[in-house]
Amino acid sequence: MSNKEKYIQVFINSFAVKEKDLVTLKYQGVGTWDSMGHMRMIAELEETFNVMIEMEDILDFNSYAKGIDIVKKYGIEL
């Protein structure tokens, strides 16, 4: 599985959304991406890519697209 596929899978697992809806997905755009869902998704991303995401990035992580840029900062090719 590529890193991009892993990234997508984290979103599908965390928020129970369809892959086709991910590109435009934003924080609080679906009921499952609330603050608790956000924490669960961050924990899942950290585990998947073995990184520790800084607090500033956790707060900036407000969309699927923005998350790609943030994960890349940690040396993960997406």
Partner: peptide
């Protein structure tokens, strides 16, 4: 605790 609760959340 912030860091370690992320493991516990998972």
């Amino acid at each position: 605790t912030q860091y370690l609760t992320k493991l516990m959340v998972r």
